[in-house]
Amino acid sequence: MIDYHIQQPNCIVNHNLTTEILKNSEALKYHQTLAEYKSTPLVQLKNLATKYGVGNIYIKDESHRFGLNAFKALGASYAIYKTLQTDRNISTFCTATDGNHGRAVAWASKKEGKKAVVFVPQDTVASRIKAIENEGAKVVVINGNYDETCIAAAKIGEENGWKLIQDTSSENYEEIPAQIMAGYLTHFQELESTLHLISNPKIDVVFLQAGVGSWAAAGIWYYLNRYGHQKPKIVLVEPYESDGILASFKARKPVTPQGNFKTIMAGLNCGIPSLSAWDIIKNGVDISIKIRDEFAEQAIRDLYYPSGSDERIIAGESGVGGLAGFIAIMTKNGFQKVKEELQIAPTSNILFFNTEGATDPVNFNKIIANKD
């Protein structure tokens, strides 16, 4: 079975509400006003690059973001800030989540003196639920998968007069997901003095993990807007059993994937792609691939047990999605054509984002215990 799709991006960004909001984002300025704000570290792993036969590997470590162990608060905080500019009388925000986004909404709501109700799928691990509750939110467990949880959050939220802060856009629900995407631009902009120079990027390939695709689409829009046809190659990585974007490429329209939705990459375990994200992704991505969980486990161990002077990075199962995709491409014969398309060579500079730390400590400890 072919586990990838090679796209010839036209590098065109369609003009719509989402791209207008992205273009006018002031998220970085807003985030810089927060007491908890600090640019997350960019780590260069020279020995890991040598192991996989490339020039340089860089990882932007979002596990340090706002003390929340994940990047999601970039989007949730900005969206809530923009929403309250329109209506300060909102008392309660709600959302559906696999974990990190819900915690981010709870954290941002608390900062604004508002309540939060967070809906989670039935298989959400206890540690993620506890992390959300620790931010002061009420957690409601839905007997269903991620897509079904999103439907429940929207329905129950409307019935109770709560404001939905969801990162998945759909028909007649675009503005708030676009503000969330605009918030994500901050950590791409933080690299503009190092890797994202104005003339030409200092990287050849960027790996972005994808769930509903909103964060990945924000990254793609950033690179298209900054570099156009000179952008680095962009690879999207999904879990094997939850491949909404790859399935949508094959169907030539957004569809719900047909996998069994069983994966350790819980934050990427989503259904149909966000509609506004899909519009950007299909025009700007070079490769879409799906991978087995074993590659995520290997990526976690590669970062936890570094070689030589490389810095240790604590990365969760979804956080390593991009690196896991790279490892699959470099070690699995079925991805040879992808490797050739990306022109990965001993001089290539590769960028990854560790989007979460060990948000499921029980499973993380099992993975690192299996060192061999």
Rank of each mutant, 00 (worst) to 15 (best):
L42N: 03
T92V: 13
V206E: 10
Q8H: 15
S91C: 10
I291P: 05
S127F: 03
I344R: 07
L45R: 01
L191I: 07
F93C: 11
V120T: 07
A96N: 10
N145Q: 09
I329G: 07
Q230W: 03
H31N: 02
Y78Q: 07
D372W: 09
N14D: 12
T331C: 10
G161F: 08
H31C: 01
H101C: 08
T331Y: 11
G325E: 05
S63Y: 10
N10Q: 10
K46S: 12
A154E: 14
K332D: 15
L342Y: 14
A251M: 02
R128M: 06
V206Y: 13
I264V: 15
D3H: 10
N134G: 06
Y227S: 01
G325Q: 03
K72C: 05
S63N: 08
E158F: 06
N333A: 15
K339C: 12
G219T: 05
Y4Q: 04
H5M: 11
V212E: 13
H187P: 07
V105K: 03
G102I: 05
G161I: 14
N200L: 13
K23M: 10
Q209A: 15
A216Y: 01
K233C: 11
A106L: 05
I368Q: 00
A137R: 07
V117W: 08
E26G: 13
K366D: 06
K114M: 08
E135K: 07
T19W: 03
A182V: 04
L323F: 12
A27R: 03
T263W: 03
E175W: 00
T86R: 04
S274D: 02
K23I: 01
I132S: 09
A210R: 07
T18A: 10
A345S: 15
Q122S: 14
P232Y: 05
I129D: 09
P201L: 00
K138S: 11
L275Y: 15
E26H: 13
L303E: 03
K72L: 03
I12S: 12
V206L: 15
A277W: 13
L22R: 01
A178L: 03
Q230T: 09
G259I: 07
T347A: 13
I156V: 13
T149V: 11
L28T: 08
A217E: 10
L84F: 05
Q122E: 12
N89P: 00
R103N: 14
A369H: 04
K130A: 14
H187A: 02
I314P: 00
G316V: 03
E238F: 08
C270Y: 04
K60D: 12
P257D: 06
T95L: 06
F295V: 09
N134W: 11
I367Y: 02
D204M: 06
R252F: 12
